[in-house]
């Protein structure tokens, strides 16, 4: 077996299986949480729950996700804010607005979109990798993070890190043969896809729950979330 075979396997059948595991796994997680049951809130509201949730989402996604809306939050968490913010932004740029990834989306969805020029995407990829390393170091030294970080958190970081680095290396033809890097990149992506439903990387789905709950909880008290 050579790298070409590995690549064909990693981006072919294995990718399809990984994608399936990802979708089924996330669906299971979603259904599982929803079916744990919800108490009907009988408290008469002072303000609007829907309005509160809307503001909560507006602040969280549509306007600018990484603005620290609450005073002093940025000042007290500059590393997590900057590195965390840039990491997510970079991820979005590379995965959605990078041509190579858009073509993957196109093959899956049947339609494509305009992408950003490679140098911009490339710089964002570098920023994302630096941000990730920063978050890693921060987790090593911050006393609170040291306390709450276990093997699962380290695994998450590592499993997200490998596709990013191999992807960057392959666009720059660094050190290894292109096919080898591409294969490693795809294998790492497959592992990531399978790992997401098993880990807290799935937070992007539960974000919509917690943000809505937060907004409704504040909104019903007529307090801005």
């Amino acid at each position: 077996m050579n790298w070409t075979d590995v690549l064909a396997f990693a981006r072919g059948p294995l990718f399809q299986v990984a994608l399936l595991v990802f979708i089924a796994g996330m669906a299971y997680r979603l259904v599982r949480v929803i079916f744990l049951g919800w108490q009907v809130d009988k408290v008469p509201a002072r303000g609007s729950k829907v309005g509160g949730a809307a503001i909560s989402f507006l602040k969280g996604i549509l306007i600018w996700p990484f603005v620290p809306w609450v005073k002093n939050t940025f000042k007290k968490n500059p590393v997590i804010y900057l590195a965390g913010g840039l990491f997510h932004l970079g991820l979005f740029v590379v995965l959605v607005l990078g041509t190579a990834h858009m073509l993957v989306w196109k093959s899956l969805l049947g339609f494509g979109w305009k992408t950003l020029p490679l140098p911009i995407v490339d710089w964002m990829a570098a920023v994302t990798i630096v941000a990730m390393i920063t978050l890693f170091i921060n987790r090593l030294i911050n006393p609170v993070l040291k306390l709450i970080t276990g093997p699962a958190e380290w695994a998450n970081l590592a499993i997200v890190f490998v596709p990013m680095v191999t992807g960057y290396m392959m666009t720059h033809h660094l050190w290894f043969r292109y096919e080898a890097l591409f294969s490693l990149h795809m294998l790492a992506v497959d592992v990531l896809l399978i790992w997401i439903p098993l880990s807290r990387i799935s937070h992007f789905m539960f974000y919509f729950f917690s943000k809505a709950i937060h907004g409704a909880d504040f909104g019903k008290r007529a307090v801005e979330p």
Binding site: V33, W38, T73, L145, R200, H203, F206
Partner: peptide
């Protein structure tokens, strides 16, 4: 006590630790 309300929020936590700096005791 763990219904959807508790579970969905526990699942959403990314273990970022930002809440610490908001706590007056911390």
């Amino acid at each position: 006590e763990t219904g959807g309300y508790v579970a969905s929020q526990l699942e959403a936590c990314t273990r970022c630790g930002m809440c610490a700096e908001a706590c007056h005791f911390y």
